[in-house]
Design a binder for these strands. Structure first.
Length: 205
DNA sequence: AAAACGGGGGC
DNA sequence: GCCCCAGTTTT
């Protein structure tokens, strides 16, 4: 597999967004809300929440019931409301209101696993890391970049296979490609921009 | 390794 | 109406 060609082609198809230019705290909270939830729904809920509570301090003092009502549509809203408030409290009390740019510190926060922590590092701080979700996991296997069973193994393998300068782009590019073309079921190989690089493409028509 | 949390959207 | 979905935690 020619990684450079793959990344270049996906970048043509899906122009990269603004890495490291978003408020890390907003990235952190929005990413927790996004877990097992579609983007459009997440964005609506995050807008409601942030228009009322903008900073870690404000959110740490918010009524959990009010947070629940603002984010209800994302699902898992009770546990997510508790986690969001607790994360805000910890960021406010232990880190002076600034999200730490440190994977180990991020992983200690409730509701933050490797995917969420790496998203904060990539989208909030512009770090060269790989955030592996189900799309990245599925597509990495289909493209033959890895042969793995869990997202953790996929992250480990991708760090060996993909040059570090490409890492930060992997999540956004693969996710958009995965929603658009290389879907879990009903993949559109006849419209695929990288089908000639794919060992697992279905025969056309 | 598997269950549990959950409302929204596609078909 | 049924099934899947930008995960993480707990059993």
């Amino acid at each position: 597999m020619q990684i450079d060609a793959l990344i270049a082609r996906l970048k043509e198809q899906y122009p990269p967004g603004k890495f490291g230019s978003r408020d890390p705290f907003h990235v952190l909270i929005a990413t927790v809300l996004s877990q097992r939830t579609r983007d459009e729904v997440t964005d609506r809920a995050a807008d409601k929440l942030f228009s009322k509570y903008r900073t870690p301090e404000e959110l740490a003092c918010a009524d959990v019931r009010d947070i629940e009502n603002l984010i209800r549509e994302v699902g898992f809203y009770r546990v997510k409301a508790l986690r969001v408030k607790e994360i805000a409290r910890i960021i406010n009390n232990d880190y002076g209101g600034k999200v730490p740019a440190d994977i180990e510190a991020l992983l200690m926060l409730p509701g933050v696993g490797r995917k969420t922590a790496n998203c904060v590092l990539v989208y909030g701080f512009g770090k060269d890391e790989i955030a592996v979700d189900t799309h990245v996991h599925r597509i990495s296997n289909r493209l033959g970049l890895v042969s793995t069973k869990t997202p953790e193994e996929t992250e480990e393998e991708l760090r060996r296979v993909i040059p570090e300068r490409h890492w930060k782009y992997v999540n956004e590019l693969f996710v958009r490609f995965g929603q658009d073309i290389c879907r879990p079921a009903g993949r559109k190989c006849d419209q695929c921009p990288v089908s000639e690089l794919c060992p697992d493409k279905r025969k056309k028509q």
